[in-house]
């Protein structure tokens, strides 16, 4: 565990805290994509099946349980909470997210590290995570009014991926040059998807303006 990995994980955790804070205090999930949140539930459950087969550390196990639990809780709020669900931006959250699942699964069948169920599902979850933010980014483009908590949530989520890249560079030089193609390439793709958002987020922050993404 290095400082960049820890910073990445903490940023990821903070993004979820910010999202839950928005939902619980404002009783609103406006601007949040249910499609993206559902994809995260699939990502975490398929990736962390190794909870039963592989023990890395107490830290890893605890974080995995937190990520599964919070992602399920967020989807529960958005789908079933009687007040929160009414604030869902249903008409603007139109990305056909289920179409992302088959290509990621086929890719996982073609390029897993080993041809075992847990390795294939693990690779699938890495590929799916890379594109899971797309419905959320599309929803932000369509939103005329992006509130601060929603903007912060997406920014923290992107920052987590960027920090993981720094972590990989650091690990490459400190841990006898091990290669992790699957997470590296997927992570680069995932971070690149945020480039446009980062640009407008930082610009609005510097100019003290409200965040708006051009369509």
């Amino acid at each position: 565990m290095n400082i960049f990995r820890l910073a990445g994980d903490m940023t990821h955790l903070l993004s979820i805290v910010v999202l839950l804070l928005k939902i619980r205090t404002t009783k609103s999930c406006a601007g949040i994509s249910l499609k993206t949140q559902e994809l995260y539930v699939i990502v975490f459950i398929t990736r962390y099946l190794d909870l039963f087969t592989r023990y890395v550390s107490f830290y890893n196990t605890a974080m995995k349980l937190v990520f599964i639990g919070t992602s399920v809780a967020i989807v529960w709020y958005m789908r079933l909470h009687k007040v929160v669900k009414q604030t869902y931006s249903r008409d603007e959250d139109t990305f056909k997210h289920y179409l992302l699942i088959p290509p990621c699964f086929i890719l996982a069948l073609l390029i897993p590290l080993e041809f075992t169920v847990t390795e294939i599902l693990w690779s699938f979850s890495i590929y799916l995570e890379a594109v899971a933010i797309l419905p959320q980014l599309l929803l932000l483009q369509r939103s005329s009014n992006i509130d601060n908590l929603t903007g912060s949530y997406v920014f923290l989520l992107g920052a987590y991926r960027a920090l993981y890249i720094v972590n990989w560079v650091y690990r490459f030089f400190t841990e006898t040059h091990k290669i992790r193609w699957i997470p590296w390439i997927s992570g680069l793709v995932q971070t690149a998807l945020y480039a446009d958002f980062f640009y407008y987020y930082i610009k609005s922050w510097k100019n003290h303006e409200k965040l708006r993404l051009p369509a």
């Binding site: 592989r54 590290l113 693990w122 993981y164 972590n167 091990k178 290669i179 992790r180 699957i182 997470p183």
Partner: peptide, 10 residues
């Protein structure tokens, strides 16, 4: 150079 999985990360 050795190719490994990334199971130790989250």
């Amino acid at each position: 150079l050795k190719v490994v999985s990334g199971h130790d990360e989250l």
